[in-house]
Design a protein around this nucleic acid. Structure first.
Length: 750
DNA sequence: AGGCAGTCGGTTTTT
DNA sequence: CCGACTGCCT
């Protein structure tokens, strides 16, 4: 085949090695997707494999779509028949078909994280536990972690180590919550994201005939981004490939960034043990980036202990040095990014789409957005508050979900009284108690409202069920679009939004219209055979914002590092290079955590083809508070030969700030005069509870105040600098401090 | 049942 | 800063 000519020797080896277990270690920018697509094409064309027998698993819908696209270009429509999708969507489809074998209805709902958390909140409340101890987030991630390691609630409750662990964390009832959560999901005919994989494992474990069916079907199994698989995912693929042993995994241990989701880097490090006759190919030549960028990335990742041996290199030019940009605040950082983009665009005749701004957390996008808007630079945000997480979208989807699956408790709670129809919390509570305590299906309670509720409430509920029933009939007779359309209209949801004439309301109305359009597109797409509402819902439940078609106009891309994986841009800004932000202080519990943050930095830098900027701010607003920031340790870890400091950017203001208030700490800007008192005289001080930031607006010179850390002090000076009001305070035991009034916590004594 | 004002708390990444 | 929740009033 002539398409093999364009490949370098290791790439070609990977493509041609089709039989038996194969691991491809693919460094950043080494042409991984190319190899994967060529390999599939090769299987079909040269080896005569039926596309129907090939399964390719990816982590994002985008990656799956991209690969499908590229194969189609290579070998034409034949490629349509290969099964290509994310783990979650692939096994959701299989579970739909086999649901009855594990006791689920085939129209099961898929709970997203919000639904899961809401359910956990209800359970914690019902168990009369403290929701400050059992926070939905913590509980969910604990349960999720268990499921990813295939620990059922039964096992969880009986495992003495887990028990000891939970007790040490002062959360002894965790196992019971897990049990109740799981029972409640089952009763609602619902699975959360992790269940899709967990239950597939259960299905394959308990029903060997089913497993065998899929083993026969998938003669060739391929896993992309293998470093991101968790145990649950790995076991599924291993089982599927057990008969034919044609398993090909592609990954890069240096880009494993999903440990928080249960990804286990050991999967890739131990793969050889599971397959002794494993063939390994390393793709080490980088075609994407300049030497400087490759070297910078390598110099960071080299500090990690847990990694496979690999030497990524490139024949590309040295390119420009990496530019280090220092700003005094997050807003100035944004301005610098925007002006740099503006200038580079003009100087090098680049498009907006050649630029990307990457950050560690979604909330960092704000200051960048503002600056870009001011300079009239078009941008698009990937991820963030997802379209599908918007209230109006979730509301309409909840209606659709409830019509499809009338046991779906979370969907029910969303729609029962929205728009308002006079059914209050007490009534909802009664309905749920009736259903749960006596183990009656929710829909049975609703259709017999008279037996459970008193007159007025029962009538309102009757009207509701009548409406839902009519939607059900409509759903059976019509396609997803028509059904959704009349649900939106007749439920009153569309009218409610239409009547809201604020800009926000208009937006919401448009969003709902957009969802309806998406359903229309789905129905009109000849590739989708099943045009029912249920089929559409299962499709959409696993979509994220990243999968939505954004306007293809020329725009700068803003996103988190996590969502940037697999992409490349000519020029990349990695912003917020500050200690505790990146590497994130939330993460930093162990060496492994630091190493994952390093890999994250590795991913970020290797997105850049020609030029890379690292920027940081000395002060930053987060959660409405102004914090002082230290430069990230990563700035020191990068090989200094690759970096140059942008002098122009180091403004007088930032320099002054840096020198004068160098000892940053949350809550105060710095020490002006060192305290020359013996520390032994510091008395033990228990702060009273009423320290409020707002109090400090009333500060006047000469006042006596109390600070939670420094104790009692006297205000010596009030001054305004820029947007900040500052107070110098002489503390009894700590000398003079300068506090920022916008957030310093103080109590005024007189 | 529902609306409003005021308090409290979280503050990471995604299928 | 922003959303979720609480308590009070109609």
């Amino acid at each position: 085949m002539d398409y093999l000519k364009g490949l370098n020797p290791p790439q070609r080896e990977a493509v041609e090695h089709t039989e038996g277990p194969l691991m491809i270690i693919a460094g950043a920018g080494s042409g991984k997707t190319r190899v994967l697509t060529y390999r599939i094409a090769h299987l079909i064309h040269a080896k005569g494999v039926d596309p129907f027998n090939i399964l390719s698993l990816t982590f994002t819908n985008k990656a799956a779509a991209e690969m499908k696209n590229r194969i189609e270009q290579l070998i034409g429509l034949e490629a349509r028949n290969t099964w290509m999708g994310t783990f979650h969507s692939t096994f959701a489809k299989i579970l739909r078909v086999e649901a009855d074998k594990i006791g689920y209805p085939s129209n099961f709902s898929i709970y997203d994280a919000d639904d899961s958390k809401s359910l956990i909140r209800t359970i914690v409340k019902e168990m009369k536990l403290d929701d400050k101890v059992y926070k939905p987030n913590t509980v969910l991630s604990r349960i999720s972690g268990a499921k990813n390691r295939l620990i059922s609630w039964e096992t969880y409750l009986n495992d003495p180590f887990i028990k000891a662990d939970d007790e040490a964390a002062m959360k002894p009832r965790m196992g019971e919550i897990y049990r109740n959560y799981q029972r409640r999901l089952f009763k609602a005919g619902a699975m959360d994201f992790d269940d899709l994989l967990f239950n597939t494992n259960v299905l394959f474990r308990d029903h060997l005939d089913v497993l065998n069916k899929y083993q026969q079907r998938f003669k060739y199994v391929m896993v992309d981004e293998f470093q991101d698989t968790n145990v649950s995912q790995y076991l599924i693929t291993k089982k599927l490939a057990a008969v034919h042993q044609n398993i090909c995994v592609v990954g890069d241990d240096a880009q494993s960034i999903y440990a928080f989701r249960g990804a286990d880097i050991q999967n890739i490090l131990n793969f050889e043990k599971d397959y002794p006759d494993l063939f390994v190919v390393k793709l080490e030549q980088n075609y994407r980036s300049t030497k400087n960028i490759v070297q910078a990335a390598n110099s960071i990742i080299a500090k990690n202990k847990a990694q496979l041996k690999k030497e990524v290199w490139t024949q590309n030019h040295n390119g420009e040095l990496i530019e280090l940009i220092k700003a005094s605040s997050d807003n100035e950082e944004g301005r610098m990014v925007a002006t740099t983009i503006f200038e580079e665009k003009n100087n090098k005749k680049l498009n907006n789409s050649d630029f990307a701004v990457l950050y560690r957390t979604n909330s960092q996008s704000r200051s960048i957005e503002e600056a870009l808007r001011k300079m009239n630079i078009t941008y698009k945000i990937v991820g963030g508050l997802s379209f599908y997480q918007r209230k109006e979208i979730k509301d309409l989807m909840a209606y659709m979900r409830f019509v499809v699956n009338k046991e779906d408790e979370e969907a029910f709670k969303r729609v029962i009284n929205y728009p308002k129809r006079g059914i209050g919390d007490t009534t909802v509570e009664k309905i749920l108690v009736a259903a749960y305590e006596h183990d009656i299906p929710l829909w049975e309670v609703l259709t017999n409202a008279n037996s459970f509720l008193s007159g007025r409430a029962a009538n309102a509920v009757d009207d509701f069920t009548t409406m839902i029933k009519s939607f059900g009939i409509e759903m059976e007779r019509k396609d997803a679009y028509e059904a959704a359309n009349s649900i939106a209209k007749q439920s009153g949801l569309l009218r409610e939004l239409y009547e809201d004439k604020t800009i926000e309301g208009l937006n919401r109305y448009e969003n709902v219209q957009e969802l309806l359009n998406a359903i229309k597109e789905y129905v009109d797409n000849p590739e989708n055979e099943d045009k029912s509402l249920g089929a559409f819902l299962q499709e959409i439940a696993l979509l994220t914002d990243n999968d939505r078609d954004k306007d293809t106009t020329d725009a700068v891309t803003l996103m988190t590092i996590h969502s940037s994986k697999g992409l490349e841009f000519k020029q990349v800004f990695v912003v917020g290079m500050e200690e505790d932000l990146f590497p994130s202080q939330m993460m930093m519990q162990s060496r492994e955590d630091l190493e994952e943050e390093r890999r994250l930095f590795y991913v970020a830098t290797t997105r850049a083809m020609e030029k890379l900027y690292l920027t940081y701010a000395l002060t930053r607003y987060r959660f409405g508070r102004l914090l002082n920031c230290e430069p990230s340790r990563f700035l020191e870890e990068v090989d200094p030969a690759c970096i140059r400091v942008n002098k122009r950017m180091t403004s007088a203001l930032s320099g002054a700030l840096r020198n004068e208030f160098s000892e940053g700490r949350s809550g105060f800007i710095g020490i002006k005069k060192p305290a020359n008192r013996p520390t032994t005289t510091a008395k033990i001080h228990t702060p009273s509870p009423d320290f409020k930031p707002s109090n400090t607006n009333n500060l006047k010179e000469g006042m006596l105040v109390e600070h939670p850390k420094f104790g009692y002090g006297k205000v010596t000076k009030i001054e305004i600098e820029g947007i900040n009001k500052k107070a110098s305070i002489q503390f009894d035991n700590f000398g003079e401090k300068v506090l920022l009034l916008s957030f310093a916590k103080l109590r005024i004594i007189d």
